[in-house]
Amino acid sequence: MSENSTLAHHFDSYAQQKESASLGMWVFISQEIMFFGGLFLAYTIYRWRFPEAFAYSSNELDIGLGLFNTIVLIGSSLTMALAVRNAALGEKNGTVRNLILTMLLGSVFLVVKGFEYAHKWQHHLIPGPNFQFSGPDPVHAQLFFVLYFSMTGLHALHMIVGLGILAWLTAQAAKGRFTPENHNYVEGVGLYWHFVDIIWIFLFPLLYLFGRHHLT
């Protein structure tokens, strides 16, 4: 074993080290799923209890922006997956390029989200004393927006954290720290980024698409 080996002394092989790193990340994602699970449960219970308020509230969201952001975020998952692939092949430039693309797409998502939030603010759809809603049952429509801001807000927070980690990862990749044998940081950050993508895959139909068919 060479002096600058990236195999930690407590592992027998690179394969074992890689498996341990991925498994640790999956256990972390597991608790993240449970963490988001509480919000998904609250959404399910209240939508079941107040279907009309939730259906009308859902129609206040911009389906075009939601679709655009879904495409952008899945696109960022593709570039992230390609960055991991580049790292596994030892392609340093490809890794850096795809990580930067991932950060760009993630930023586009957050900017669009910001415009959506601003629009809700202008239309008095922020829960609280200034909440105004023309549809039926405005009291419980507030519940929808409480959940909308909690769920998308927590999701956006995860993306902001992810962008910070990606910036660090890109710097490490540019220094050539990752090898086909050990690019476990790239794989781990990839797992986190894809998890955030999956949360959005469920948020998009639950928040934006539900209630759409009541108008047809």
Binding site: A81, E187, H194, D197, I198, I201
Partner: peptide
């Protein structure tokens, strides 16, 4: 949504 999640988990998350 579940189908999409399975695709991401199986292929992107290896």
């Amino acid at each position: 949504a579940l189908t999409k999640a399975v695709l991401v988990v199986a292929f992107f998350m290896h």
